[in-house]
């Protein structure tokens, strides 16, 4: 078993240590975007993951992690 997993993000593939959680991934993702973790909502493989559950949400190789923010809208 590899010590690393690769997840898909809006910034492209991201390698993380096996056993990483969504909270860990978010720290890496947001370091590029100058946003804090409270300014985004998250989904893993299209399923909403609430803020309190991020730290206990394990990621698997191939998972897709997406972040969403408010925008103007009609």
């Amino acid at each position: 078993m590899s010590d690393l997993i690769t997840i898909q993000t809006d910034h492209g593939p991201l390698q993380l240590p096996a056993g990483s959680t969504l909270a860990t991934a978010l720290t890496h993702i947001l370091s590029h975007a100058k946003q804090d973790s409270h300014s985004v909502a998250t989904a893993v493989n299209g399923q909403f993951v609430a803020r309190p559950a991020r730290a206990s949400c394990p990621l698997a190789d191939g998972d897709t992690v997406l972040c969403f923010s408010p925008i103007t809208g009609g």
Binding site: I29, A33, Q35, V40, P70, T72
Partner: peptide, 16 residues
């Protein structure tokens, strides 16, 4: 007032 949501991280800085 209505708002939307978007994967704003797809655009560096969010574009807001």
């Amino acid at each position: 007032l209505t708002l939307g949501l978007k994967r704003t991280l797809a655009v560096p800085g969010g574009g807001d």
